[in-house]
């Protein structure tokens, strides 16, 4: 009886730990040729700078389906405030002819875009894509 109680306690603690950890990951289609991107490249990609992989430009999709996810993106990926990021994007568009990352406000739309474009790259909560065989996690951007 005492053993069973300890076992149950251990199970619940591990479950809490596992369920309490939140991670934001960089994702692409399962058959995408994107293998890995360092943090500087990811930042360049989402700042609208052209990033080529195997001669093809990557297509950045900004996942705005969740407010906290967006804040993690701003803090960890581009390291800017919202207004500064918008300003930088507009400056890049007007002066350097950079490409504005596509803003998508629905998780389903993000996945749909990724599935239709092999060069598309986005980010999402790990829990939302971990069990999706059509989506591949490229790297962890942030975890808590």
């Amino acid at each position: 009886m005492r053993r069973a109680f300890l076992y149950l306690l251990l199970l619940s603690v591990s479950g809490l730990l596992h369920g309490g950890q939140k991670s934001v990951v960089l994702i692409a289609r399962a058959d995408s040729k994107v293998s890995d991107l360092d943090s500087l490249t990811v930042r360049k990609l989402f700042m609208g700078w052209p990033v080529l992989v195997n001669g093809g430009p990557l297509h950045a999709i900004r996942n705005r389906s969740d407010e906290q996810l967006d804040e993690v993106f701003l803090q960890q990926v581009v390291a800017m405030s919202q207004s500064a990021y918008e300003r930088q994007i507009l400056t890049g568009l007007n002066r350097q002819g950079s490409i504005r990352p596509e803003d998508v406000t629905s998780q389903e739309r993000v996945l749909q875009e990724l599935l239709t474009d092999p060069n598309a790259v986005s980010f999402a909560w790990l829990r939302d894509v971990a069990h999706n065989p059509k989506i591949r996690v490229i790297r962890v951007l942030w975890s808590e």
Binding site: Q75, A79, M80, S81, Q82, A84
Partner: peptide
């Protein structure tokens, strides 16, 4: 607040780099 957040995010990113 926006100015502060923008500064600390850029600064911390620079430190990490």
């Amino acid at each position: 607040a926006d100015l502060f957040v923008n500064s600390v995010r850029s600064y911390s990113r620079m430190v990490a780099d």
